[in-house]
Amino acid sequence: MTMPRDDENYVLDDQVGFLLRLAYQRHMAIFMGRISGGLTPTQFSTLYRLREAKGPISQNALGRLVGMDAATTKGVVARLIARGLIRMEKDEEDRRRHILSTTEEGRRLLDEVMPQVRGITEATLAPLSPIERDTLVQLLKRLN
């Protein structure tokens, strides 16, 4: 007698994790093909959130704003500092802590890529109707 397999009714193409990964790969390919300035999506998000903060913030706070763990944040920050897009300084109130802010070059690069980023979002969502786009974004926000 043959025992039924545990995965008999499992369809990979219907699994949310698999579908999210494919959608993410599509978005990454579009992003990397269209963005100027050599920014990765993670670097862009980090730089954007830092500018959005409207003032210096700690590396930990920045990581939370972008949804990255401390090690990933440290690496992304180091690469952005090396490129002259952000700067790190000692916090005047707590000398053990470092605070980050965008440089003029970082703000200039963000201004340059913003039209491209908007186009990347449009291209990623192109297969969807406007209502489907809104629904997808709202559902993703609920998951996060």
Rank of each mutant, 00 (worst) to 15 (best):
P4D: 08
R5D: 13
D6A: 11
E8W: 05
N9K: 13
Y10I: 13
V11T: 10
L12A: 12
D13N: 13
V16D: 05
V16E: 10
G17L: 15
G17H: 10
F18Y: 14
L19V: 14
L22K: 09
A23Q: 12
A23K: 11
Q25N: 05
M28N: 06
M32G: 01
M32S: 08
I35R: 01
I35L: 02
I35K: 02
S36R: 14
P41M: 00
P41Y: 01
F44E: 03
F44V: 00
R49M: 03
R51Y: 01
R51A: 04
P56C: 06
I57E: 08
I57V: 15
N60W: 11
A61S: 02
A61T: 06
A61F: 03
G63M: 11
G67W: 09
G67D: 05
M68C: 04
M68L: 13
D69W: 06
A71P: 05
T73D: 06
G75V: 11
V76F: 09
V77D: 07
I81D: 03
A82M: 13
A82S: 15
G84V: 15
G84R: 12
L85N: 10
R87V: 13
E89C: 11
K90H: 15
E93P: 06
D94M: 02
R96M: 08
I99C: 04
S101Q: 13
T102E: 05
T102C: 09
T103R: 02
R107G: 03
R108K: 15
R108E: 10
L109M: 10
L109F: 07
L109N: 09
L110F: 07
D111Y: 08
E112A: 11
M114F: 04
P115N: 06
Q116S: 07
R118I: 07
R118E: 06
I120R: 00
E122G: 00
T124K: 04
L125N: 00
P127M: 04
S129R: 09
D134F: 10
D134H: 08
T135V: 15
L136M: 12
L136E: 04
L140N: 04
R142Q: 10
R142L: 11
R142P: 01
R142G: 03
